[in-house]
Design a binder for these strands. Structure first.
Length: 332
DNA sequence: ACCTGTCAAGTCTGG
DNA sequence: CCAGACTTGACAGGT
């Protein structure tokens, strides 16, 4: 099984390469010349896209082929007071350049719209804002010229004291989305609300691939199911959508501390991750692993070093590149 | 150069 | 019904 590793949003190795520079509404509204302020927003976004391209070049150099784009590429993009502003057209070339580089070098890109996007909400205005945010992310992927393998990963959302009703509302809201948006959405199990089993049920209902977060599963697993026990169903959600043309994606991170088990640690403990990978290796041809750690790309490099050590110690894996590993199934 | 409070957005908890 | 926590990188305003 081929395993590729990736990281989120920014590098701790590249200097002055933030893809998430911003301007707050407070600052924007204090600027006297609104047109100039909008041009300023565009120039910040242009710089964010330029740094994103630098990050992709860095990824290629490190042999990293999985990367999550930051949602903050365009500051205030979906803010209600800026509804008359079209931030996309002026940035068309920059978006196209980022997408072209990713395609040329086979880098799998995704977004993770943050927790304000809540499809399980009972509030119409929150649902409308969520649709707007999803449309924004999908438009950016389209402007990059990326096909439906470039996705937006979200959580199911809040439960509002009645998880069953919230799940039904989620499915109903999901089915109302335009197909070009719905077909880009993946669902991730949550560390507090919808567990892996519950998220998987909804994925099967609405036809969305499921991103299994191993850390979230470790801290929110009410029915005590082993991740490899539900893995065949998770794989199927990907195969149904992509027919085997896109490996399933999982998230890996480690608890920050015993007192904050849900927080993300600086680095990733390889042991539970490798154990899981070995258990699914037999009937999974490929999987991509998004590393969510405070030390970003540095944690990825450290993880690969530890993989090499495990390989030397006889673990059933071979480090095949800067950020990829072949894992073999254990023969009993 | 460095420190601290704040930021567009939602939900949950506790008072 | 409302304040605060949650969580995160970066701004803004201060020293």
């Amino acid at each position: 099984m081929i395993v590729r590793f990736g990281y989120v949003a920014m590098s701790v190795q590249l200097e002055n390469a933030s893809p998430s520079k911003t301007m707050t509404m407070r600052t924007f509204s204090r600027l006297a010349n609104r047109e100039a302020a909008l041009r300023k927003l565009e120039s910040i976004a242009r710089e964010n896209l330029r740094n994103t391209l630098r990050l992709l070049k860095h990824n290629r150099y490190m042999d990293v082929h999985v990367y999550r784009l930051t949602s903050k590429l365009i500051p205030l993009a979906t803010h209600g007071d800026l509804a008359d502003w079209d931030p996309y057209a002026p940035l068309a070339d920059e978006f196209a350049e980022v997408g072209a580089f990713a395609k040329e070098h086979g880098i799998r890109l995704s977004f993770h719209p943050d927790h304000y996007t809540v499809l399980s909400t009972p509030r119409p205005e929150v649902y409308a804002a969520s649709v707007k945010d999803l449309a924004h992310h999908v438009q950016m992927l389209e402007m990059m010229g990326l096909d439906e393998r470039a996705t937006c990963n979200i959580h199911v959302g809040g439960t509002y004291g009645d998880k069953k009703a919230a799940g039904r509302r989620f499915a109903e809201h999901f089915r109302r989305l335009e197909p070009r948006i719905a077909r880009r959405i993946t669902l991730e199990n949550d560390d507090k609300t919808f567990s892996a089993s519950e998220t998987l049920d909804l994925c099967e209902q609405v036809g969305a691939p499921m991103v299994l977060d191993l850390h979230h599963h470790a801290v929110n697993n009410p029915d005590g199911v082993a991740p490899e026990a539900i893995w065949p169903r998770i794989r199927r959600t990907w195969d149904l959508r992509y027919g085997g043309a896109l490996p399933p994606k999982i998230h890996a991170s480690s608890p920050k501390s015993p007192s904050d088990p849900r927080g993300h640690a600086d680095y990733v403990d390889p042991a539970p991750l490798v154990a899981f990978l070995i258990r699914i290796a037999e009937d999974t041809p490929a999987v991509d692993v998004m590393i969510e750690a405070k030390r970003k790309d540095e944690s990825l490099l450290r993880l690969m070093d530890e993989m090499k050590r495990l390989e030397a110690a006889g673990a059933p894996l071979t480090v095949t590149g800067g950020a990829s590993v072949e894992v073999y199934c254990k023969r009993s």
